[in-house]
Nucleic acid binder design. Sequence first.
DNA 1: AAGTGGTCTAGACCACGCG
DNA 2: GCGTGGTCTAGACCACTTT
Lengths: 240, 240
Amino acid sequence: MKSDDKHIPKYQIVGDYLKKKIQKGVYEPGDYLPSENALCKEFKITRTTARKALDELLNDGFIKKERGRGSLVIEKNKALGLLTVKGFSEVSGKKSQTIVLEDTNENELPQDYLMGLFDDDKDARWVTFKRLRVLDGTPIMVDKTFYSLSHLPLISANKFVDNSFFKTLSKNHLIEIKGAEQELRAIHANEAIAKKLDIEEGSPILHISIKFTTSKPNFFVYSEVYSSTKKYPISNSYFL
Amino acid sequence: MKSDDKHIPKYQIVGDYLKKKIQKGVYEPGDYLPSENALCKEFKITRTTARKALDELLNDGFIKKERGRGSLVIEKNKALGLLTVKGFSEVSGKKSQTIVLEDTNENELPQDYLMGLFDDDKDARWVTFKRLRVLDGTPIMVDKTFYSLSHLPLISANKFVDNSFFKTLSKNHLIEIKGAEQELRAIHANEAIAKKLDIEEGSPILHISIKFTTSKPNFFVYSEVYSSTKKYPISNSYFL
DNA sequence: AAGTGGTCTAGACCACGCG
DNA sequence: GCGTGGTCTAGACCACTTT
């Protein structure tokens, strides 16, 4: 019989160990990790192995190597894509706020839904909620989010963990966001949107249609976002 | 092989050598590269070095390693994100076209450059070129691209491989696009842009500022894109 | 059994940053 | 001068694929 020994390579053990320490805050951005030679002694490994462990962290964007100095912990890349307004929750001195415009309720699918992505679940029952994001007093975006009741019960938007739907999915339902497809259009703000975003009717705004893929098979979350980009542009990073 | 080592590490010489062979078609997708041991003998290097050379190709998406079999050359597909208009080159029956509006020439950096990403290379000499993308007769986007002469010579936009700057970087200079940071804004088209995109002045368009990260350290490519999204929205996928 | 890639050891010399 | 990371050698054993 084959044994089920999962032989985990040393470099991965050491790499994961360092990642966890960074995630726990033992090492913060700006700190230097133990040197390669220090890791060799601590874990009784050779430099090749220690370097491979650090390469993992380098690849995942945890550290930056500086010859002659050491391995510097850096701010991690968040490839969270377009839903991240520049510094929405990270701009120092700015306060972000989420206002529920319309709490979760059963609803018809909009006829004019733009993305041809509803192939599945066409006859399912859907719920939606609508929210307004405000950054430092400035309305930034309105979003309307859809999901199917056949995969998740109705959850009040007022009961989201940290006002975040995705955090709620993760913490209470163990569902993780795995990816997304998006379509972007520049459009004129209509009266309703303009009023909510406190801009003039006809101002150029960004309309984003998003289909989120989750860790739960066949469970997708759909979002329609209307964003005023004048003060805070949408920022986005992606790495291949 | 000659040993013109000097500054360039061996693994890079071997890695570049293999990349060139792939790009020349000596090795095609589906082929296996010489085994690590074969490379050791051919270049008189150790397996560590041979493996590091192959790691380069692995990172740049040229090959896939198969234990017990070898290093398989694969098709390079770049999910280039936002620069991909929906089906720009894939819509069946549609013809894409790239028109050079302004050939590559040395230029001043624009004063109003939006992204605060020029920290490095501030005093370097820059070249720019400007192009118009047309899909099935409809102008889709204009883009102005910048790069620093300290990393790459001036290349005429009329001599790009397949009209693609990135393909040129890859095929002729072994530089791969690794990722990007972007900022998106919805704006009103000014007269110049409107004329080029054949839309009314004041129409909402998408303005995208992009900083591309490459496989060449400290070499970045900057692009300013203005896109009419009415007929063809920008589409984008990302996966975590 | 032979060949491939995956991991690892125990060294070595070099280029760089800092005191 | 010393410690750091960058490169490299010359081996070794392992897991996996193919013949």
